[in-house]
Design a protein around this nucleic acid. Structure first.
Lengths: 130, 130
DNA sequence: TTAATTGTATATGTACAATATACAAATTAA
DNA sequence: TTAATTTGTATATTGTACATATACAATTAA
């Protein structure tokens, strides 16, 4: 079975397409929407659907394979693997903190109200307890 | 006076340097660390400090000027302007939501624990009520 | 008026993103 | 077993964007 991840990519974004694909899929993997043993669409299928060349998708899959999320076999497509989460490192935490700050700042600058931001942060936290 | 923003840039990051500078400064602007009337370092000063070419800094300043944060005058340097926050738009909010999701996913994939993430999200919220 | 300081404009080298195309492996069907 | 098809891979090419070098223009100060 090939669950359609229903990705949102923005061709106008400064972030390269292959990385948008990586980021989208990583979210689904972390959240468990895509689980061990699931098979992703073929590079050609997903490329067609997103309107980009299949090599761009292949690059994204390779990146996720490097991160330990996927196993790529010829003809069998990309299969989601079991993956052990790395140990928490302070440097990574600091990077996370900086990125979060900048994301919130970007949102506020773009007009997202403090109320809305708070709401989304809260939602995000509640997903964990659930 | 020229407050030193004390920016953190990572030459190894895939995010281009000029955008790292933009993101860092935008945080300081949104948070009010840099306020109306403040003057930023000259492009050559900041470039020297960060070890990049001054044109790279100029590009960042121009970006922030486009966003309405800075006014650039020859010889007078970059001056922080009063800026009216745009009205909240649903599309922007959705983008913010996607970015937040991806940031958290990235963090979890890199080993940041749910506990740590929750802690940072909470901190961020508390900054608003303060 | 002259000199120094600063942002701007243009050109260039380099790296990376995205594609085109040919190839190799694995499955399926005859 | 063999041939055809489906897939990911490898390599080359093209275009775009990042970063720099360098010359220029404007403004301030001496």
């Amino acid at each position: 079975m090939r669950p359609d991840p229903n990705l949102v990519i923005d061709p106008a974004s400064p972030v390269p397409v292959y990385r948008q694909v990586v980021d989208n899929l990583r979210s689904l993997l972390v959240e468990g929407v895509l689980q061990e043993g699931d098979t992703l669409p073929t590079v050609r299928e997903l490329g067609m659907e997103l309107g980009v060349h299949f090599n761009t998708i292949a690059e994204a899959y390779r990146q996720l394979a490097t991160e330990g999320w996927l196993e790529l076999k010829r003809r069998r497509g990309a299969v989601v693997m079991a993956r052990t989460t790395p140990v928490e490192q302070s440097e990574v935490v600091e990077q996370f903190h900086r990125n979060l700050r900048q994301l919130v700042a970007q949102g506020r600058a773009d007009g997202v109200s403090i109320r809305t931001i708070t709401q989304h942060l809260k939602e995000m936290m509640e997903e964990f307890s659930a």
